[in-house]
Design a protein around this nucleic acid. Structure first.
Lengths: 327, 327
DNA sequence: GAAATCTAGTGTAACGTTTTACTAACTGGA
DNA sequence: TCCAGTTAGTAAAACGTTACACTAGATTTC
């Protein structure tokens, strides 16, 4: 690997001058500048990141901490993060805590040791761990707001509202809610958005919370079995919705003939399950991209202006909601 | 951040001694050793990876280069890689080429610049890019063998055989093949495994290749429409199978009543599509784990003995294959 | 009892880069 | 002409770690 010294001897100048050229400092004549640049290209020079890091304290790498890549919400996000980061010349270091808090903290320690320049984090729990406080590097949270941190996520309230409007439009006036974990703001806002936007004509017959991973609790099983005459079940996300559809079909209840269902997230495969799932699409790619952009801005010293960046969502109408009644 | 010098002054020894203790070298008495270790813990010492890297040339980070995280084959793999790596104290740097060759080479360059200690790579094309040759660090390939590299993958031939046996067992004697790209060994071996294991009673009526991403070519569309009396379609992977099921159902052809289908990979959601997909399960987690273990072994100097590590696969019987005929 | 070996350390150079302080040679103005 | 200011460049220290070459004293060997 060619070093700055190799360039210096090749051109016949000092290493300081080479460094000055490479870092775009003005104190070097344009003829020497040309020569240095040419020699650098010639020799295939790549700065040694370790040496740079030691001198400057910046590694040009960022951490990405996720709860579970296996949840289809995250791969698309991770992909966008990696690609945007790469376009800034930033390397992405991945931590997947697999849903375990100790994994999360171990991973965080590993990132610290490698002195990443910042971290994009979707915490396991409702709020980021306290350890994060001690970090003097930029942090962008995904989906979980934290005191004093920048956060980017979708407009969940809007999603809930769109769903409520759609429910009414399709003639559903008695619904059940199969929400995500209500200690997570992202789950709570979906619910509240729906509940608050639902006009008086819509009656919420029951409400049960389950995890975003879609494993059905006894209460959820009970609610799905009895249903209490609801014509529509609003699920907290697609995984929950799919899980519910499967459970219902195993018990001889058909969607949407016997009961309609909506999801949330528009993960891949929602249009391949039967019935194709009516859901809310989040711009996952845009979220990942924005997170990196905020991170990069904040790394280059600019104060993050918007503490919260919220993206619009859209309703995807498919086949899991049946029109009932007139209109 | 506490440095080795801080420890040295705290204990009253030289930095060399501290370094010797920390790296487990034998030339230091056990009383001083105790003291140093204690002080290190006390001060919350973490070695500065950049400095270590500069001195030793090792970063304790590895690269993971994937074609497309969005393909459900990869997240589980990535998760296993990250977790196993972390258990070795290795950081995983992610590159997702999004199916583009320039992305792949850009990402590779980025990894080189950061001087990762090795790379686990699932190349885009049938063979790893030539640039990899110039790399003097351990490489483990996933799923695509390359000359002189270690590779780990599933026993695709065995998968094909299991499928052929199952086909016969279920009474299917006339099948169509909807294979993956035949320039990829992993697709070719699935096909060959099936074809070679299929006894004379099984007639292969037609054979069409599509991409692993499941987008149907005109030939595939034609084959699915006409079908030429096959009772079973053997798809190259689950994504293709699901894609085919969807296409067929849109054209009023039911699976498995009108035609049976098998997949390959056992990705998540295969048991949630309708009908639930009969497929071959690969031990993705084990593959990722093994890749890191090979990598780590090779990093610590041991020669990689097995050039090829192959994992057994299992048949997952579900609902997409109908039993026909007697037996 | 002298020579050889071993034990428990230490001093310091080196890794590749950036940056501060410095210098020498010009330039322009009064 | 002299001084101030600018331009173009350099020397060297520093970042935190490791590892090589050493040493002083203790212990063994013949």
């Amino acid at each position: 690997m060619a070093t700055v010294k190799d360039i210096a001897t090749a051109v016949g100048v000092s290493v300081a001058t080479v460094s000055n050229v490479l870092n775009g400092r003005p104190n070097v004549g344009h003829v020497i500048r040309k020569k240095v640049l040419h020699a650098a290209k010639q020799l295939g020079y790549r700065p040694n990141r370790a040496a740079q890091a030691m001198r400057t304290g910046r590694t040009r790498a960022i951490g990405l901490v996720l709860p579970d890549l296996t949840n289809p919400f995250f791969p698309e996000l991770a992909q966008a993060v990696e690609n945007t980061a790469r376009s800034f010349g930033l390397l992405v270091c991945l931590i997947d805590s697999q849903g375990r808090v100790d994994g999360e903290s171990d991973g965080f320690a590993l990132l610290m040791q490698h002195a990443v320049d910042g971290v994009i984090w979707c915490p396991l729990g409702p709020r980021p761990p306290a350890a994060l406080k001690k970090l003097d590097r930029p942090v962008v949270l995904i989906d979980r707001p934290g005191p004093g941190y920048a956060v980017v996520h979708s407009n969940y309230v809007m999603g809930g509202e769109l769903l409520a409007q759609h429910a009414l439009r399709m003639g559903h006036t008695r619904v059940g809610l199969l929400c995500g974990p209500q200690d997570l703001e992202s789950a709570r806002q979906r619910r509240d958005g729906f509940v608050n936007a639902a006009p008086d004509e819509i009656e919420i017959a029951w409400e049960v919370n389950v995890g975003f991973d879609g494993v059905l609790t006894p209460q959820a099983v009970d609610a799905l079995k009895r249903r209490r005459n609801v014509t529509l079940i609003v699920a907290g996300n697609d995984v929950i919705a799919i899980s519910a559809i499967r459970f219902l079909s195993e018990h001889g209840i058909n969607v949407p003939e016997d009961v309609s269902i909506t999801g949330f997230d528009n993960i891949r495969w929602t249009d391949v399950v039967t019935p194709r799932l009516t859901t809310i699409a989040q711009p996952l790619g845009a979220i990942g991209k924005k997170a990196v952009e905020l991170m990069h801005g904040s790394m280059s010293g600019e104060k993050i202006s918007a503490r919260r960046t919220i993206f619009d969502v859209t309703l995807i109408e498919r086949d899991s909601v049946r029109r009932i009644g007139r209109r």
